[in-house]
Computed example of a mutant assay.
Amino acid sequence: MAGDRTVPPEQPGSQWYDKEAGPLVRPYAMTGGRTRSGPYGVRFDLIALVSLDTGAPDADDDTGLGPEHRALIELCRIETQSVAELAAGADLLVGVVRVLLGDLLARGCVTVSRPVPPAQLPDEHILREVIDGLRAL
């Protein structure tokens, strides 16, 4: 038939190339094979807030940074975001984002605000008593 298209056989190595997305890069290639963030193994919570540190001496120097690092910096330039939001915005795995953020933190490009542990949050019962006391005034 004239309308039939035959799919050409895959060539060796073609599994690493997507016609729409371009070359596919494995996550370990983006992190240089590292699975931990920074030399101290800092672990970023999914809800930790990351913001661009514009006062850092190397904040605008992106030499030595990969395209994924630059993408995270651009996302942080727009607004402060959580680690989970950065992973979604950069379309990267959370583990990869954590390693890349460790690099950016070590360079002083970003600052991280860690969430308050639940044990340090005020008890709901105490807050309700305070509200009731204020209403009684």
Rank of each mutant, 00 (worst) to 15 (best):
L100E: 00
L46I: 12
C76H: 03
V94Y: 10
P67K: 06
E79G: 12
G32Y: 04
E68Y: 01
A59H: 14
R43K: 14
E85Q: 15
L104K: 05
S51T: 15
R114F: 15
V83I: 08
R107T: 04
G108V: 14
G41F: 06
V50W: 00
P115Q: 05
D58Y: 07
V83P: 04
A90E: 04
T80G: 10
I47C: 05
L86R: 06
T35M: 04
E79M: 06
A71Y: 00
Y28M: 15
D60L: 13
R34T: 09
P39N: 07
E68T: 03
V116G: 02
L104S: 02
V99M: 04
P57E: 10
V99W: 03
V97F: 02
A59M: 05
R98I: 02
V25I: 15
A56M: 05
R107K: 10
G32T: 08
A87P: 09
L105C: 07
L75S: 08
L75H: 08
Y28S: 13
R43M: 12
P67H: 12
E68Q: 07
V25E: 06
P67N: 13
R98D: 02
G33T: 13
V96S: 04
L65A: 01
R43G: 08
P39L: 11
L100P: 01
G55H: 05
G108M: 02
L93H: 14
L101E: 03
T54W: 10
G33E: 04
G55L: 11
V97W: 01
G64Q: 08
L75Y: 06
L93M: 12
E74F: 12
I47L: 09
R98W: 03
D53A: 14
M30Q: 11
V50H: 00
R114V: 14
A84V: 11
G33H: 09
V97G: 03
A106H: 12
R107N: 05
E79I: 07
V112M: 03
Y40E: 13
V116I: 12
S37T: 05
Q81W: 02
A90Y: 08
L46S: 14
L104R: 01
R36I: 11
A59W: 15
D53W: 10
D103K: 01
L52A: 06
V112P: 02
V83R: 00
A56L: 06
R77H: 10
G33K: 14
P39E: 10
A88R: 11
L93T: 09
D60Y: 10
L65M: 13
V110F: 00
C109V: 14
L101R: 00
G95P: 10
D91K: 14
S37K: 07
D53L: 09
G32Q: 02
R34Q: 12
S51Q: 10
A88F: 11
R107W: 07
V25T: 15
E85L: 11
R36S: 12
D91G: 10
D62G: 04
L86W: 04
L101F: 01
E79D: 15
P115L: 01
L86D: 05
F44R: 01
T31L: 04
R114S: 05
E79Y: 09
D45C: 08
S51R: 14
M30C: 08
R98A: 07
V50S: 00
